[in-house]
Amino acid sequence: MESSTGRQDRRRLGIPVLGLLALALAAPQAGAADRVPSKKVELEVAPVASGLEHPWSVEVLPDGAYIVTERPGRLRIIRDGKVGEPVTGLPELFVGGQGGLLDVALSPGFAKDRRFYFTASVPGEGGQGTALFAARLSSDESKLEDVTRLFAMNRFTGTGQHFGSRIAIAGDGSLFFGIGERGEMERAQDPKDHAGSILHVTPEGKPAAGNPFADGTRGAPEIWSIGHRNPQGIVIDSADGTLYTVEHGARGGDEINAPKAGANYGWPTISYGKHYSGAEIGVGQSAEGFEQPLHYWDPSIAPGAIDVYHGAMFPEWEGDFLVAALKYELLARIDRDEAGAITGEERLFDGAYGRLRDVKVAPDGSVLLLTDEEDGALLRITRATAAP
C-alpha cells in the first residue's frame, strides 16, 4: 500500500505532531533540531536540507556529502546543507505513477573509481519496466559518465505501479534488487518473469553465482526468489551477511522477509492482508511450499525502506531493523534479541514529518530519513545532547 493519509497540513520540516498551532507562524530555521523521546533514548531530529521533490534514496559520499535521487528524474548532491543543481547525463526514464528515478547505491570502490548503481523505470517495448544502471560521477560532480544499462526486466507493461526497487551490494560485489509484480499479481508466481522477484546479478549485470535457475530452463537465471508483491526495501546485514527485504502488502500484509535462493514468498497465493475491496487474498495466510514472513503488518504501514542498525551512536538499537513507512508517516524500530529474533516494535515520529521513504544508517551511526513530499527533506537523527 502506498497511499497518502491526508496529512498535508503537517508535512513541514521539523514540525512535530504536538504544537502545530503554536508553530504554524514560525517555520523552523535550517539546522534547528526537534527533541523526540523514545523508549530507550532521547533523539534529536534535524533538517539537513529541504526543497527536494519526492526524494527516493540517499547515500553518504566519502567526504560526508550526500547523493540523493528525486523520483521525477533528478540526481543531486547535498553539501553543507545546500542542494546542488541536477547532475546531468541520466538516461531516458519513464516518470509517472510510482515510476521514475529510484534507488542509488555506491560501489564498494567508489572512493577510487566513483562508480555507483541506480535503478529506475524506463520506457520500452510494451510500456515501461524496471532497469538497473551503472555510472561514474564526474570529479566535479556535475555529470554522469560511462552510463551503462546493466539489466532490464524481461516484460514491460503499461501499468504505473510496483516497480520496486532498491539495491543491496553483497561482499563479493554482486547486486541484489527487487522488482514488484507491476500490479499484475499472478506474475509474481512465474519464475520466468522478473516481475515480483528478488534479482541477483554481477556488477556487469549477468546472472550471479548461486542463483537457483542458473541454466534458465525452470526460471529466469537472474532470479533469486519469487512471490513478492512490491519489495521497496532491501539490505544485507553487515554482521552476518543475511539478506532482508521489506515489501508492500495490499490493505495489509506488509512483510519483512529473509529471501533464500529458490524460495517462494507467497504473493498472491498467501498473504496476511486483504485486497483493497476487502476480499480475501488467495488461500489464506499459509500453504505448503510458501515461506512465512519474519514479521508482518496488518493494517499496512506502507514500508519504504529497511536498514539494520549497527553503529556507535545508538548501542541500544544494535541489530534492530529500521523501517521507513509512508502511510502512517513513521519510522518503525523492530527490536531483535542477540539471536536475531524479533521481540517487539516501537513506532517513532508518527505523523510528524510526512511520508518517510528512505532510512539509512550513516557511517557515524546517525540515521538519515527522506520525506516523500513535493517539498521533501533530508533529516538526520542523532542522540540528544544533555539538556542545558
Results as ranks from 00 to 15, higher is better:
14 G>V: 12
29 Q>D: 14
36 V>Y: 15
57 S>W: 10
67 I>K: 04
71 R>Q: 14
73 G>Q: 02
77 I>H: 07
78 I>Y: 10
78 I>G: 07
79 R>P: 01
84 G>N: 08
92 E>A: 14
96 G>Y: 03
101 L>H: 11
108 P>F: 11
110 F>D: 02
112 K>E: 15
124 G>D: 02
131 A>P: 00
132 L>C: 10
143 K>N: 12
165 S>L: 05
181 E>Y: 01
183 G>L: 00
185 M>K: 13
186 E>S: 03
190 D>V: 01
192 K>N: 06
192 K>E: 11
195 A>P: 00
201 V>I: 13
201 V>R: 00
207 P>I: 03
218 R>E: 15
230 N>T: 09
234 I>S: 05
235 V>S: 02
251 R>K: 12
251 R>A: 15
264 N>K: 05
265 Y>F: 14
266 G>M: 02
277 S>Y: 06
278 G>M: 10
280 E>W: 03
283 V>G: 04
288 E>L: 11
288 E>Q: 15
293 P>V: 12
297 W>M: 09
311 G>K: 04
312 A>F: 05
317 W>I: 09
321 F>A: 04
322 L>W: 07
323 V>G: 11
324 A>N: 09
326 L>G: 01
332 A>M: 10
335 D>T: 04
337 D>F: 11
355 R>F: 13
357 R>T: 05
361 V>G: 03
379 L>A: 06
382 T>A: 11
382 T>Y: 05
